[in-house]
């Protein structure tokens, strides 16, 4: 029984008592360490295998691919910078980038403001608060595809519920998804609607972490609700805002699913985004090398944007959690 006691427990005591490591069973200590090493690497084996096949190899191979003409079937060959040059000369690529940019600029700030606003309301002590919280959360857990189909129906120009209500109120019908000027806004609205519950939960957690004493002190000093919001709440949740800002931009540049379902990039390519461009080249035209090059360009763009964010926006983040 006693022989099983792990050595690292006994060892310090032995040294304390005798001043030197007397009678330390070197062999046992060594085997302890070897055992941990073997078991440790064994436990990490699935992770390593996955990382090698699905993370490390793809990253490197993608770069190789981007300098080649690589149809799924047929001859493949090295073409140098040709893919990149073709991409930068393609108006459709720039249109995709522009549309993704439009989406990002509209979605990220609106989504953050709406989430914070709703979270503030849901952070009050009123009756039925759990009921509200559950309700606001529901769109987030449902399948984006299913609810995108539902919203396509709601946004239908002739038979959609939204236009039905508008006409009852005496307004003109709007081509929510069929008018090139409006379609992107409808997509943005949908994305906010779907993501709201998730963001609200995160903001609620942040709001509940703000020490109550700060508000009490501010009240004594005569601060109104706006001053409290501006000088306490906003700075205290700024790490969360910053997190959402960065993640929002990264996600928005790659927006795809809701657009694929709701408009397919139309009408008149007004919602055609850059991820769709990559998808089309990879899985419709089977130009894997070209698509890989688009992927790399997008990744570099995301990386640069994130760096700028860290530098510029990161400064105004208040990390001192009282």
């Amino acid at each position: 029984m006693l022989g099983n006691i792990p050595q690292h427990h006994c060892e310090p005591k032995v040294e304390e008592v005798f001043g030197v490591a007397v009678n330390t069973p070197q062999r046992r200590r060594w085997s302890q360490r070897t055992e941990q090493t073997i078991i440790g690497y064994l436990c990490l084996l699935p992770t390593f295998a996955y990382a090698a096949v699905f993370l490390v190899f793809p990253v490197i191979f993608s770069l190789v691919l981007s300098f080649r003409r690589w149809p799924m079937f047929g001859p493949k060959k090295f073409v140098g910078w040709e893919n990149y040059i073709r991409i930068f000369q393609d108006d459709l690529f720039w249109l995709g980038l522009k549309n993704a940019g439009r989406y990002t600029i509209a979605f990220v700030p609106l989504s953050i403001i709406t989430s914070l606003f709703v979270a503030l309301l849901l952070n009050t002590k009123i009756r039925g608060i759990n009921f509200y919280r559950t309700g606001y959360f529901i769109p987030t857990i449902t399948s984006a595809v299913a609810v995108a189909v539902v919203w396509t129906f709601l946004f239908d120009t002739n038979y959609g519920l939204v236009n039905d209500w508008l006409t009852r109120l005496g307004f003109e019908r709007v081509g929510w998804l069929s008018d090139p000027k409006v379609a992107m806004w409808s997509i943005v609205f949908f994305s906010i609607w779907r993501g709201l519950g998730y963001n609200v939960v995160i903001y609620l957690a942040a709001l509940q972490g703000v020490p109550v004493q700060l508000y009490e002190a501010a009240k004594i000093d005569g601060a109104g609700w706006w001053a409290q919001f501006r000088y306490i709440t906003l700075p205290m949740v700024s790490p969360t805002t910053f997190f959402m800002f960065i993640m929002g931009i990264i996600g928005s540049i790659q927006v795809f699913e809701q657009i694929f379902i709701m408009t397919g990039g139309g009408p008149m390519r007004s919602t055609y985004v850059v991820f769709m461009y990559m998808y089309d080249y990879a899985f419709r035209y089977n130009e894997m090398g070209y698509a890989a090059a688009v992927g790399y360009i997008m990744a570099v763009l995301i990386f640069i944007l994130t760096l700028i964010n860290m530098k510029v926006t990161g400064k105004s983040v208040h990390y001192d959690q009282a």
Partner: peptide, 9 residues
Amino acid sequence: LPGTIMLVP
């Protein structure tokens, strides 16, 4: 690692 790089490979 950005998903855009991983998709094709």
